[in-house]
Amino acid sequence: MRFCAFSVFLLCSFKALAADVLLIPVFTPKPEYPKQLIDTRYTGKVRVNLTVAAHGGIQATKIIESSHPQLTEATQRVVVQWRFKPWDASHGQPSKIEVTVPILFGARGIEPFSREITVGLRNTLCAYLNYEVKTSLLNFADEPLKNVDVFWYTHDFLAGSYVQLRVSDQSEREALIAQLEKAIPRLVRKCRRNPDHPYAYYLPREIRDVLVGL
């Protein structure tokens, strides 16, 4: 009975969170794929940390991972233009928010090569996750699948400052991370069958509710 009561409490909490979104994208164009990298069929990724001010503009950016300098440049040129819906920082909301966003150039992995670019965990394709899982199983068979980048990025997001703002209780945040790890085998199976679907489509709803809607 305690477990059931706790589950109901979590469900109600996350329903409330769904209506309490802090970062609502208004203008978030994708970077352009550098022509030289298209010609060489190069795929890669960039992760950028954004500091968004309460007026909705980008206050600062920091590249924390990039597989190629040209992808870094393409990302930086665009993300400084991004805009989010302003919020009122005088009613207990923060004056700025930090969030880390993955950008995948070649959203389906190396084979077959694709010019698609996806921005954010919500838009990461199952095809890319399938590629990462296949690569991990071939090259790092003893490593747990939770270390695959897409899963690791999701874990990192759930443990980050944005989710801490939306889910103040540490035990609830830990419950989200536990849900993610428990769901990994199902996510792998679902994505293998449906490579064209967004990976986030198969995440537990409570996790989807706190993802930034990029």
Rank of each mutant, 00 (worst) to 15 (best):
E73H: 09
P69I: 04
A54Q: 06
L71W: 01
G56Q: 12
V48W: 08
S66K: 01
H55W: 07
G56F: 06
Q59C: 14
S67L: 09
G57S: 15
T43R: 00
T43G: 06
H68L: 01
S67W: 02
V46A: 02
Q59F: 11
P69D: 05
V48I: 13
T43F: 03
K62D: 06
Q59A: 08
V52Q: 13
V48D: 06
P69M: 02
K62L: 06
V52K: 11
L71M: 06
T43S: 05
E65A: 07
H55N: 09
R47P: 07
V48R: 08
Y42Q: 11
A60N: 14
Q70M: 02
G57K: 15
L50K: 13
S67T: 13
P69V: 04
E65G: 03
I58M: 12
T51A: 08
T72I: 04
T51I: 10
V48T: 12
G44C: 09
Q70T: 00
L71C: 10
L71V: 03
L71I: 02
T61I: 14
K45Q: 03
L71A: 08
R41Q: 12
Q70D: 00
A54H: 06
Y42V: 07
L50G: 10
T61A: 15
A53H: 13
P69E: 01
E73Y: 05
P69A: 05
A60P: 07
H55G: 10
G44I: 14
V46I: 05
I58C: 14
N49L: 15
H55Q: 09
G44F: 09
H68T: 03
T72S: 05
Y42H: 05
A54I: 02
E73R: 00
N49M: 13
S66Y: 04
V48P: 01
T51S: 14
K45H: 01
L71S: 03
G56S: 11
V52T: 15
I58W: 14
S67C: 08
L50A: 12
K45N: 01
A54P: 02
A53W: 14
S66D: 08
K62G: 03
A53V: 13
Y42T: 11
R47M: 04
G44T: 15
H55C: 10
T72M: 05
T61P: 03
K62R: 05
H55L: 09
T51P: 01
S67R: 03
T61Q: 13
G44P: 06
V46Y: 02
S66I: 04
